[in-house]
Design a binder for these strands. Structure first.
Lengths: 296, 296
DNA sequence: TAGATTGTTAATCGATTAACAATC
DNA sequence: TAGATTGTTAATCGATTAACAATC
């Protein structure tokens, strides 16, 4: 029973939880790094309101975390606060920006200008945090040559030269899932070392390349899980109580199922279960245009 | 120094890492729940290729995790494997689907039909995992009445009746950040108890309401952090070496800065730092259309 | 000085992982 | 029976949190 190539991705920390590589470069924990943008956003809002200083309690509230966590996070950056007073807003904005690498310019390429790619391209706010759209790329001749957000959509063939001449190190993949790994490979080969993947695909990348993913489908499924719990224990179920029966009973049932199935396709054994699943959860495919965001 | 309302969100587990409420309903850890959709996707692909069984090693590779973790995750669901053989693909697809609540239908409303909302609406794949777009909503009369993906965009005023009549429990927010909390409040008041937030805003919700967020800006910033590390220690910096000086020196410098600044606006003291930050990182605002995805 | 608030410690909790006995 | 692979244990690691001494 062969499976597609073995996968492996380096520091994929996304919602899945853990970071792959320790990556606490200079000792900042990954969980802290992930919260710095949150603090920065809250601080920027305070800055715009000309608030000079803020306490850990207030800032934590604005960022939606607890204050002990915030103080611990900041302690990794240094001692930027003043006991009895709080934190200097402007100074902290600068320190966090610098720590995140936002005091420099980051050229970004977006590959796959479908609905989502178009939407991202249209977003003028890229620039506001030091991110600059270096190019929009697509493989479809029907899309190449059109413009999105004032930028021309260029052909994938130009990828390598664009990445090289503009020193692009971050790539955004908004292609359909089928093309994602291939696009990823080309990005990496061109010299891109950070990838933000919107395609519902597990990307394989060499060591030293970071991949983060944004996956609408996964988020919705996690919400559904919790939602199901709220709606009273065990909603309507077509399958038998055996699934929730105590260990021995369930094990015996499973044994029966498999015994009946044999080695070949085991169709009859798992019949009820499999058919029910198929009914409410078709194999997908022939999706809409945003196929990049959910599994095909 | 007042700050906006204190924030608090229930089980916001996103990239930020930790889950707010334990929420391990019936004992399934949050980290495991977040990986179930990943396994399900890999299993669905195997199912389509008619692969009957799969080992933890193979499935783990396909899902991009290690096999010990996968086996541990599955052990929370029950004993669905067969020693010496592996897991029955179809049966596992069904069990995970059921555990995630995907064997039932989940009506979803999308609020804010800008570029991103439009993109999501156009995505036909919603249905493929049991999610159904119940309605598209917008507050802008210029948008209301248009169609997206064959569905009419309806006015926000219809929110309450739609949620009630169609039993909607999941809402997706793709509005500009300024409107997100207000929209969230209305969703919650209407009866929605799970929210997927694309607006770069910390949402405040009552207990019992789950919020997950998708934040392009944060993902890019995390990538930038790691990217900065790769490019050799400390890239070009306009600010002084003091920022990276050993503790005592840095502390002394900070003290000076604050002493010079006084209580008022402390402008001169942090001048260099603050100005540098402003230069490369303008206060944003006047963003493009996808303002819902990145901070304004 | 008295009050406020940071920065750090230490306890706790949850998640990851290797290893292996159980068992197909 | 021998080989393969699960399910579980236990060790380890990382993240969270309350509490409080340091110090503004």
């Amino acid at each position: 029973m062969a499976i597609g190539r073995p996968t492996q991705s380096s520091s994929q920390a996304p919602d899945t939880g853990a970071a792959r590589r320790p990556s606490r470069a200079r000792g900042i924990p990954e969980a802290t790094v992930a919260r710095l943008p949150l603090y920065l956003r809250a601080l920027t809002a305070l800055s715009e309101r000309s608030v000079p200083t803020v306490s850990s309690e207030e800032l934590a509230a604005a960022a939606g975390v607890n204050s002990a966590k915030l103080r611990k996070d900041f302690s990794y950056l240094g001692s930027y606060g003043t006991r009895g007073v709080g934190y200097d807003v402007e100074y902290l904005v600068y320190q966090i920006s610098r720590e995140l690498g936002l005091t420099q310019d980051w050229p970004v390429v977006i590959v796959g200008i479908g609905n989502l790619g178009h939407a991202l391209a249209n977003y003028g706010g890229f620039a506001s945090r030091g991110f600059r759209v270096a190019a929009l790329l697509d493989a479809d001749p029907g899309v190449v040559g059109s413009t999105a957000a004032g930028l021309p959509v260029r052909h994938m063939d130009e990828l390598e030269s664009i990445v090289e001449t503009q020193q692009v190190s971050i790539g955004v993949i908004t292609t359909p899932p089928g093309a994602a790994q291939q696009v990823c490979d080309r990005l990496v080969e061109s010299g891109v070392t950070s990838i933000l993947n919107f395609a519902p695909t597990v990307l394989t990348v060499p060591d030293g390349v970071d991949v983060r993913k944004v996956d609408l489908s996964i988020e919705l499924q996690i919400l559904a899980f919790h939602e199901q719990r709220k709606a009273g224990e065990e909603p309507d179920r077509t399958d038998s109580v055996l699934d929730r029966a105590p260990g021995p009973v369930r094990a015996a049932a499973a044994k029966l199922r498999r015994a009946a199935g044999g080695t070949a396709k085991a169709e009859p054994a798992k019949s009820t279960a499999a058919k029910t699943a198929k009914a409410t959860q078709p194999p997908a495919g022939g999706e809409g245009d945003l196929s990049a965001v959910m599994p095909a």
